[in-house]
Amino acid sequence: MFVVMALLVGALYAAAFYLLLARSTVKLIFGLLLLGHAANLLIFSAGGLVRANPAIVPSGVEAPLPGYADPIPQALILTAIVISFAVLAFAAVLVKRAYVESGTDDSEEMRTTEQ
């Protein structure tokens, strides 16, 4: 399953990169979204894939059952999900503003700082 996940991560990255390379600023935002997913899954896979044994302490014992999923990558990803959402929201509003101001969503036409 690890190899399959690696392929998924690679494919998501490729999709994200392709969208980032498109000159449309809207596609740029979509690319950012996919890039976030790909990065999260990269960390998740690198942390090791464990089926049906989350790092939760069952009632009656003091520690999670042996073989539990590593909690640290999960904590990192949880933070990353929230932050990438915040960044995405800001970037999306920015792109929208840029479109309203300049009348284009082609990043090549936004090369200069002048109007």
Partner: peptide
Amino acid sequence: FTAFRTRLARVVDALVALAAGTIMAGLV
């Protein structure tokens, strides 16, 4: 959506993206 890029540029971009994606898969 309008297509800003030429067909050739799209193909080149797709190849670059695929290569970079392969690298990331290798990284995992």
